[in-house]
Amino acid sequence: MTTAQMSPAASRPSRQLETPFGTFPIDDASVIDFADGLPGFEQTRKFVLLSSPELAPLHLLHYADGPAASFLAVDPRVVLPSYRTDLGAGDRLRLGATDDHQLLWLALVTMDAGQGPSVNLRAPIVVNPARMLGCQVMPHNSLYPLRHPLALPE
């Protein structure tokens, strides 16, 4: 998935976004609106989702207007194929979602000193590409951990 595939129509000429993983061209149509921001980043409400071969299978969820916030993210089912989290009515409303199958799920990646990478399966990011709306969902009864460790293969 790329920003281009998610946003066929550009409403403003493409601009360059500097990231720790290189420079990416973005335009208004590739901007995902997070109405509530993310916990800890309540004021950063515009993000773009960037992909590149060096990042795969990760994506970079980057603040659209600068370096204020960026996160490495991965489809939770890449990490845990059985992963499944139900959306609440409020989440669907925030996402303008009518069809769950079109939603994009992302788990944020954390790299803690000495512990290796882990992913947050407890509070995934969900994006509705049809409306370019996103939010971080925090299901009340989730049994998934905040830090699901990525173990090295035996």
């Binding site: 996160f71 490495l72 944020l108 990478p117 971080q136 293969p153």
Partner: peptide, 29 residues
């Protein structure tokens, strides 16, 4: 908890040099 985890995750982008390669290795991809 989720707020704190998000802040650590945001810091990870800049702190860890090649997280993608590390993740790929761990996922055997």
């Amino acid at each position: 908890q989720i707020r704190d985890e998000n802040r650590i995750a945001a810091a990870a982008v800049n702190a860890a040099g090649n997280v993608a390669a590390e993740v790929r290795k761990r996922l055997e991809r």
